[in-house]
Design a protein around this nucleic acid. Structure first.
Lengths: 231, 231
DNA sequence: CAAATTTGTGACAGAAATGTTACAACGCGA
DNA sequence: TCGCGTTGTAACATTTCTGTCACAAATTTG
């Protein structure tokens, strides 16, 4: 999915930064580091990372303080933040959420857990600009020209199939029930049979062809999911 | 899932209330009725229904007036409202939406449409708890993508196995009887043999593979337990 | 140790969910 | 109006899941 995401790690302990950086690099992310909030702020403005991992307690400016500043500036308000903290104090969680923290990880945590939560937040938060071209495994959807194409040739999609594909491509790695899909793709207050979704899924799969139909996965008993990850 | 939602139907014509009530009861909702806005207000404060279906035109206090009152009181401000109206006048729709109406249904409507829109509003309004990724010894369960994975590869779980695993991962280090598991994982009022649990435990263990099956421990004479600690 | 109890395991038929096809209704531009 | 593409639904096909049973293995009891 596009180029590697830039993740800024902010922690005053270099050993922790190292540990996290290694885990993230292995997972295919690109890491930036800062050992204090001021430097972090500068890097964020300068580099516009895709996410900030922020230690709660730091000398001078605390993580939570930095988070507030980021939120109050339009340029940085949309960058998701994950807080790292040694305390699992509920009060602090509440504070964090109030300040617009996207997730919360309590030390100690496993690198794997970190990566998993990080991906989850990226999925949830990255809204993908409405008019942005989306590409997944050679499958390209261009909202401007309102076309989807694979290997250069345009796919033959009906309007509904197109909307369905667009929705999926901008909401990957997440299972949706038929009802949710009806809500999101058909629009809130239409009432059509749930099974109608299956039929359109079928049509979309057919249009995607063997090369890409694996992207639409059925989640038995639940609904469907769009993901590059094989089941 | 949860108990039946309480829906208050407010309309001065009893035949309409009846019709709606029947449709909703069939869809599994619990209905309250009121034939005027005053009574409705009282019932709302008293019973705190999950939603109000409100007729636009009524003697004395109109539906729209009641809606305004409900919105202005913190106790009732969050209760979603669907307006029933005989007119499809755009102006009124605007008015309705301004007063915090969540949806709008023009008479005549089919029971099916009513139920569909009602569910849609309930879904939109009731925010689901934040589902967090759970990780135990390299075993990751992600409720969002509805996937469980170990070492990067997704486990092949049936719906029941998935629920069972999810339950265990969020209720570790505690022994549960077969009956309790049936209650929690299958849902209260199903009648299945207790031994069925054993079979699903078996299937889950198989899916977890040698690497992780130790997590599901048999507590002889009692039931099962999920724990990283070896017995 | 033998009997009794409890749990593990594989197989299987019925049930449930999903895949697939066909078709009638609808809207829309020619 | 006709023809065409699209859509929702029903009907049927296929796949997958579920609950039970019968028997094996393990553990406890006497």
């Amino acid at each position: 999915m596009g180029s590697a995401k830039k993740i800024l790690i902010v922690d005053d302990e270099s050993s922790i930064r190292q540990m996290i950086a290694v885990a993230l690099e292995m997972a295919g992310f690109h890491c930036l580091e800062a050992d204090n909030a001021h430097l972090a702020h500068q890097i964020i403005i300068d580099q516009q990372p895709d996410m900030v991992l922020l230690d709660w307690m730091m000398p001078k400016m605390s993580g939570i303080e930095l988070a507030r500043r980021l939120r109050s500036d339009a340029l940085t308000a949309d960058i998701p933040i994950i807080m790292l903290t040694a305390r699992d104090d509920e009060d602090h969680k509440v504070h964090g959420l109030e300040a617009g923290i996207d997730d919360y990880i309590t030390k100690p945590f496993s690198p794997r857990e970190l990566v998993a939560r990080l991906k989850s937040v990226l999925r949830r938060v990255t809204p993908k600009g409405v008019d942005q071209i989306v590409e997944v495994d050679q499958l390209i959807l261009d909202p401007i020209s309102h076309r989807a194409s694979a290997e250069g040739s345009t796919l033959d999609l009906g309007p509904t199939e197109y909307r369905l594909l667009q929705f999926f491509m901008t909401h990957q790695d997440r299972a949706y029930s038929r009802t949710q899909l009806l809500d999101m793709v058909w629009g809130g207050n239409v009432y059509v049979e749930e099974r109608t979704v299956d039929v359109h899924i079928r049509r979309l799969r057919k249009a995607l062809g063997e090369r890409h139909e694996y992207l639409i996965q059925t989640v038995r008993g639940t609904g469907y999911r769009f993901s590059t990850q094989t089941q």
